[in-house]
């Protein structure tokens, strides 16, 4: 019953996304702009650096950015703020009366809404990369990159719900989205491969969950066949899902216990 309800929530959200082609165009257009700008920067850098930076060629960097940007840009950038506002304003309360866990429905809805945008971004990005840089270096690692991209999105959405759940206790927690995204940008390897960071910073970044949200699929898409990255991602995704469910459960208890 619960699983079918969640599947229905995800399907309905996906259909809603598909029914808004205007927003999809903006989303894909924005993705292509970011990808074009960042890949141009890295290709120029590789060119100026003898054709390679930290083991990445211009071609590898292009596919790296195509994957890392898709996992992040396909999502709603202010998800933490929006969920936080709904919690803070009490708009979430009717959802607590339903027979299915509110956080479960929210996660399923968000994942369902993101997937069509993700597919559109990836198709556009792959076309762009093939056009300006060339075909992917290794098809084997690209095969791993696809499930890795989905795991990255699920992990990120779950983590954002866990952070947004702080709004059950703290009034201004919704502003945390700025800080959260900057961690994904730098420590998560979205804008910059972790191998480019100073050694100590790189070691810390590899221990954080943010690398599962951008770096892992990007590294695989850039041609490195490293299945261990998928295992790490699966672990972080499980941790983030449990954290989101636990945070919402505690927050809901607090809300219903309040006089």
């Amino acid at each position: 019953m619960t699983w079918s309800a969640l599947a229905r929530a995800a399907t309905t959200a996906a259909r809603r996304t598909l029914a808004q082609p205007g927003l999809a165009v903006v989303s894909v257009g924005f993705y292509l702009l970011v990808t074009a700008a960042v890949t141009s920067l890295w290709r120029s850098a590789a060119e100026a650096h003898g054709g390679e930076i930290a083991g990445y060629s211009g071609l590898a960097l292009t596919w790296y950015i195509v994957a890392s940007e898709a996992t992040v840009v396909a999502q709603r950038v202010r998800l933490i703020e929006e969920v936080g506002t709904e919690i803070g304003s009490g708009a979430i309360e009717p959802e607590l009366l339903r027979p299915v866990a509110a956080v479960g429905v929210r996660l399923a809805t968000e994942i369902g809404a993101v997937l069509p945008r993700l597919v559109a971004c990836l198709v556009a990005g792959a076309g762009y990369a093939a056009l300006v840089a060339g075909a992917p270096i290794a098809t084997g690692s690209i095969g791993l990159a696809l499930p890795s991209i989905v795991l990255a999105v699920v992990c990120n959405i779950a983590a954002q719900h866990a952070v947004a759940a702080a709004s059950f206790w703290v009034r201004d927690a919704k502003s945390a989205w700025y800080l959260y995204h900057k961690f994904v940008f730098i420590a998560g390897g979205m804008l910059i491969p972790l191998e480019v960071l100073p050694e100590s910073f790189e070691s810390v970044a590899r221990l954080l969950p943010f690398s599962a949200m951008a770096y892992a699929p990007a590294r695989l898409a850039s041609g490195y066949f490293e299945p261990g990255l998928l295992i790490g991602q699966a672990l972080w995704t499980a941790v983030m899902l449990v954290a989101a469910v636990a945070m919402f459960a505690r927050g809901e208890r607090r809300l219903t216990a309040a006089p």
């Binding site: 850098a45 650096h49 480019v196």
Partner: peptide, 10 residues
């Protein structure tokens, strides 16, 4: 971080 690694670009 970028220019630390790359030096100068164009």
């Amino acid at each position: 971080l970028f220019f630390e690694e790359v030096g100068e670009v164009r």
